[in-house]
Nucleic acid binder design. Structure first.
Lengths: 258, 258
DNA sequence: GCAGCGCGTTCCGCTGACCGGAACTCTTCG
DNA sequence: CGAAGAGTTCCGGTCAGCGGAACGCGCTGC
């Protein structure tokens, strides 16, 4: 788990350490389990957990502690993600209705994609992505779009480290990836052919707010029935629609600078 | 703002106070503004904010601080909300495609509804609801469903306090509301006719995980074209579908108790 | 120009919030 | 019945955190 770790001497550090002890599909963790994962002394941890329950960061259940619903609500107040989400949903829906395959919205965070939402009907392809989950940049269509439009220091950082392989098709050599990234930056569309999971293919396009790429969307389907190239234009159009709407909206506010 | 307030003498309390200083549509707040809202001494607050930026609860921008993207991610790990969301989305989508009006998913939190998601196409009715936002229980279809299925202490608590009026149609007298709640509990469907916002009508149905009502869904449309009664059956069917899927899923895990 | 204001930042000595080892209870096994 | 593991409580020591005060900067208006 390559999670950044926190200063375990401060209260806030401990709290964040606890929150990070939960992985994407843990639901309830016991005190003992949390002690193991966080390395925080049992007595101390017990008090911290009690405090966290008090402020509703955690919920107490019979079996232990789980992340509180309050946290969800706070997360939804995060402005950037929220407005992106609100603006995008209608476009994503439209894409989904038209193409009948799973649609993703993702942003760049550190060296990963984080998925803000995922819309797929009942018959959706079983992609490894989860809402709020992470995937590496080099082997997903959204990741490649984001990386292609990020500044070059990130490219170097990603490509200089050894790249994990997920399937026989995962590209792990910097050279070919670099070439592909250049093409993606030029064309404004990225593809993925079973590079992150077997049987899954993707198309993705960047969402621009002004000239900066702030997110990307993709359509994902099973390789036997889905031809990504056939939908590149639709995906790009939707991404542009979102971008235009975002720009219009943010022009109304006093523009926050990054 | 009836926000619960926190112990401002502890670090965690201060952190929570800061997070709560952001309302649903604030994006960037300056140090000075936060000082005013939180009443925390400037020097102290400055340090706390710096620490929060360090652990990525906040992002620093040119103009001040905004809630960090990290918070969004943590929020998405909250198990109950997440699994509810993941399971529900396909059903909500299906409803939306069939009915072509805005679909909501909401849960009970304290004395409010909290909306987990909202799916509506481009032509969606302008409901006052926002993803992650709150609405009172007595004047929304989802709220009434949740209240009707909550234990009686909550009913008393809500109905004994003065109920805010939003439109001429908002019901503010305990008697009629109580009668309606009983009917809703019996029938498993609630309606709302311009009680929370003018021109907006709703149908809602409860989602059951086992025998407990854990959430509710609704379809919302403008009163001039949308007949809520006509879609009660669809909404109820979708809610039941979600419930069944939830139950199947949670049977796989070691059942966490509340 | 300069006084006044509001904002962000830094400093520093005091103190009580926080720390965590240890001791205790209560199950759950073998 | 003893051992092992989980959760909870206690308490004296101390350092993380506190916040008042002072500083620098960019406004605005007299």
């Amino acid at each position: 788990m390559p999670d950044r770790d926190f200063d375990r001497t401060t209260v806030l550090g401990k709290v964040m350490t606890v929150l990070h002890a939960y992985s994407i599909d843990d639901s309830v963790l016991s005190l003992a389990e949390l002690t193991r994962r966080t390395q925080i002394p049992k007595g101390t941890l017990h008090r911290v957990l009690t405090d966290m329950v008090e402020v509703r960061l955690l919920d107490r259940t019979g079996a232990g502690y789980r992340l509180g619903g309050h946290l969800f609500e706070l997360g939804m107040r995060a402005s950037v993600e929220r407005s992106l989400l609100e603006v995008s949903i209608p476009f994503l829906e439209e894409l989904n209705v038209r193409i009948h395959e799973t649609v993703h919205l993702g942003i760049l965070d550190g060296t990963d994609v984080v998925y803000l939402t995922k819309i797929g009907g009942h018959r959706q392809a079983s992609a490894p992505s989860r809402i709020g989950g992470r995937m590496p940049l080099h082997c997903t269509a959204i990741g490649k779009v984001l990386l292609a439009n990020a500044d070059s220091s990130l490219r170097e950082k990603i490509l200089s480290a050894p790249l994990p392989r997920y399937t026989p098709h995962t590209m792990i050599l910097p050279g070919p990836i670099l070439a592909q990234l250049d093409r993606i930056a030029a064309e404004g569309v990225a593809f993925e052919y079973e590079e992150s999971a077997a049987g899954i293919v993707c198309v993705a396009a960047p969402i621009r707010d002004g000239d900066r790429v702030v997110a990307a969307i993709s359509v994902t389907g099973p390789s036997h029935r889905f031809r990504p190239e056939a939908h590149a234009a639709s995906v790009r159009a939707a991404a542009e629609g979102i971008g235009v709407t975002l720009a219009r909206r943010s022009r109304l506010l006093t523009e926050p600078r990054s």
